[in-house]
Design a protein around this nucleic acid. Structure first.
Lengths: 171, 171
DNA sequence: TGCCTATTTCATTTTTTTTTGAAACAAATG
DNA sequence: CATTTGTTTCAAAAAAAAATGAAATAGGCA
């Protein structure tokens, strides 16, 4: 008889693949959401991550039970991060997507696109703060000057560390 | 006559302080929102960051134009991250809050509280994925095994790098 | 060219998150 | 110990974010 202790080896392969897929979707939904991405983006990436073949948009949408609008927008986001790419499939004019799985590159793109622009505008803002400071530094103003300097150091450190981070990511 | 080119030196000090405050609030609202924190949390921290004196909750709320409910919840969040602390003020039984400005410690707390728990549960999930894999590795299964291994490396690298990150933050 | 399929766009709807405000609670004070 | 002041809690309201779906668009193919 089938032993419950051995379920793993006896389940049909397709079921196993489906389990993986579900765990993967769950995994990436959470990861992406930590990075501020909507659920659908995580779902799509999670599905593609464990898909052997590139999938066309309509299959992605129907497999995940999301609208083609969501799928289109989610894929746009993933494309812009270079997290998915398209493959040519002979005799099918739909685009077929597959996951880019080099996480080092993914994070590097993410940092460049989603974080560095904020850092840049933060620098502008700090410049403006300094203009609000009297330049003849009374003891009173010392407090503000120190606080501003801290912000400047923070953004400077961020600007160095974050881009370096992906490089450290030796996977 | 007052020269427009010299506004900076001629504006009354209180106005300058208020400018700083507004820029600070803006700065931290954005930063916190990148870290997934609600607007009110950024506002409170931004206000305290440039405040010479510790402020009681009701003043925080009224100065920011938010409800005391928001202020209470926001301060709870900031307290739990050790991003604000309370000071004793003689003859006043309200708690008075001031900002912790050592960013290194702040990030270290943030990583420990908000990120590491997710990493831990990710490890569990990867374990479950492996259980969905047949152990007699056919060529078919090789694909899945490699993908799972990549996830394992990713979480491992994250678990090492992120806590180290705050240490690198030489401000 | 005109048709047909695939994709994007975007106004509307749905869902999720955040804020509010009033009631409950706590704790110092007279 | 009753009152006053300060804080938390939480159901309801408001705001923000995301998903939907239908119309517009694009672009290959006969």
């Amino acid at each position: 008889m089938a032993s419950p202790a051995n379920l793993k080896e006896e389940s049909p392969p397709l079921l196993n693949a489906r389990n993986l897929e579900l765990e993967s979707i769950d995994f990436f939904v959470r990861l992406m959401s930590m990075l501020g991405m909507p659920r659908s983006v995580g779902e799509i990436y999670g599905l593609l991550y464990f898909s052997k073949d590139p999938l066309p948009m309509d299959q992605i949408a129907s497999r995940l039970g999301i609208s083609i609008g969501s799928a289109s927008q989610g894929l746009r986001t993933l494309r812009s991060l270079k997290a998915v790419r398209t493959a040519y499939v002979a005799g099918d004019r739909r685009d077929h997507y597959f996951a880019e799985t080099e996480f080092r590159r993914l994070f590097s793109n993410f940092i460049k696109d989603e974080i560095m622009p904020h850092l840049d505008s933060a620098k502008d803002r700090i410049g403006r703060m300094e203009k609000s400071l009297p330049n003849h530094s009374s003891e009173e103003d010392e407090f503000y000057a120190v606080r501003i300097e801290k912000l400047r150091r923070l953004t400077k450190a961020g600007g160095r560390l974050l881009p370096a981070l992906a490089g450290l990511l030796k996977l």
